[in-house]
């Protein structure tokens, strides 16, 4: 039973990693992103990307590579040729976060670079802690702001 649980969890994890969906929005910027790669305890998060584009000061507010001295070149994340890039920043696929931020949680994970889960949360908590939202003031803030607990049946099935 325990092994079965581990297998189910592993499948859910890895299936989810490749299942982050997106809907195209205005100006070729994703409108809504479904962040479901790590959904075990909670349902996938429906992330309103275009809403954040308008409220945030710029891409760099969330995407740490922008303006960071750590990144070597644009093509590290934007895999495209320069002419196409001018027309559409997302042409030729955007390098997903998980390629640097590992989703696995083995020994040593997250020491030098946050794991995928930690990277997501750390990006959100730049604003959604204190300033916007109750995260950090109330543990219930997680479900108030982004997360919907996974269906009880699913949890029961894992037990």
């Amino acid at each position: 039973m325990k092994n079965a649980t581990v297998v189910v969890m592993a499948i859910a994890l890895w299936a989810g990693v490749s299942a982050a969906g997106e809907k195209a929005g205005v100006g070729n910027v994703p409108k809504e992103l479904v962040l479901g790669s790590l959904s075990r305890v909670y349902e996938p998060v429906r992330f309103n990307h275009s809403g954040h584009v308008s409220t945030a000061g710029g891409c760099a507010d969330c995407h740490h590579q922008h303006g960071s001295t750590d990144v070597r070149s644009c093509t590290q994340c934007h895999r495209t040729d320069p002419s196409a890039f001018k027309k559409n920043v997302n042409a030729g696929m955007l390098k997903p976060c998980r390629e640097c931020h590992s989703a696995s949680a083995g020994p040593g994970a997250g020491i030098d670079r946050p794991t995928l889960k930690a990277a997501y949360h750390q990006a959100c908590f730049k604003c959604h802690r204190g300033d916007v939202g109750t995260v950090g003031k109330d543990p219930k803030g997680c479900t108030e702001m982004c997360h919907v607990p996974a269906a009880q049946a699913r949890l029961d099935g894992k037990k």
């Binding site: 020994p107 040593g108 020491i111 930690a118 990277a119 949360h121």
Partner: peptide
């Protein structure tokens, strides 16, 4: 071969597990 439950669960990477010498370096 696993990691402690708290480190695995922490959503913000506030708790990490690894070789002590690596942790000190990091």
């Amino acid at each position: 071969g696993g990691i402690p439950a708290c480190a695995e669960a922490c959503p913000v990477g506030a708790v990490t597990f690894g070789k002590r010498s690596d942790l000190i370096r990091a």
